[in-house]
């Protein structure tokens, strides 16, 4: 059974057809990098996977559960899919530890005593054990993004979606976030990332999906696709990123 299964997915914004029939299977533990030009529909695809956008037609199954529109509540969905954003989106009025503990407490009704050790361990695992009581505004971008990862993991999702999560960071802070992702990958987390980090996609990713004009134009084993692109569009895209 695939962890993520997308069939004939279509999505338009008004007259603008953004996804034009996406078929995608992702196995448990796979690390899939989605690459492609700006505007090719990468973010929209991710956002459909957790219903931040509702698709027009086609089907999405995550961990065997079918998502269609209102069928699955935000709460149920959060047990399957987590998401990290480019802009971190930490809750600025809550301390780092509270950011991590909030969802398990509010959504699952867990007690603070039950959640706190887990939250501390998660922060430890992203290298921020000592920041439990800090305010998000006091952290660097790289640290904030690592908190966001810990916060997402607190809901123990099966799949983690990452939308250009290093794009807003100063270059010297990108590495610390990628290392956390790499550790997750090694631990067997299923990752779907929209990324411009070709080296990361090649070294850590198991598969690369190239999107072009709302379709999957080329995909396959990460090293194969990046080292030996078949279509002229992908060749051109890769040339433009070097």
């Amino acid at each position: 059974m695939s962890m993520v299964r997308v069939d004939a997915l279509y999505k338009s914004f008004g007259a603008n057809q953004v996804l034009k029939g996406i078929d995608l299977r992702i196995q448990e533990g796979e690390v899939v990098s989605i690459i492609g030009r700006s505007g090719s529909g990468k973010s929209t695809l991710l956002r459909c996977l957790n219903q931040l956008e509702l698709h027009d037609s086609g089907s999405i199954e995550i961990n065997g559960k079918r998502l269609d529109g209102e069928a699955m509540s935000a709460r149920q969905l959060s047990e399957h899919v987590g998401m990290i954003f480019q802009s971190f989106n930490l809750f600025p009025h809550r301390r780092v530890g509270e950011n991590v503990m909030l969802a398990p407490m509010v959504v699952r009704g867990e007690s603070r005593e039950a959640v706190e050790p887990r939250a501390r361990a998660l922060l430890e695992s992203v290298g921020l054990g000592e920041k439990f009581d800090a305010w998000p505004g006091q952290l660097s971008g790289g640290q904030q993004q690592r908190v966001a990862i810990a916060r997402a993991l607190a809901m123990a999702p099966k799949v983690l979606l990452c939308d250009e999560i290093t794009s807003a960071l100063d270059p010297e802070l990108v590495g610390e976030v990628l290392r956390v992702l790499e550790k997750l990958a090694v631990d067997g987390m299923t990752l779907v990332l929209v990324t411009h980090e070709m080296r990361f996609a090649r070294e850590v990713g198991s598969r690369v999906v190239f999107m072009h004009q709302g379709k999957i134009h080329e995909q396959g084993d990460a090293k194969r696709v990046l080292d030996d692109p078949q279509t002229p569009e992908l060749k051109q895209f890769l040339a433009s990123t070097r």
């Binding site: 509540s73 935000a74 969905l77 899919v81 954003f85 959504v107």
Partner: peptide, 10 residues
Amino acid sequence: WQAARVLGMS
């Protein structure tokens, strides 16, 4: 709102 939503909050 989106961050809270993907964490499962209503």
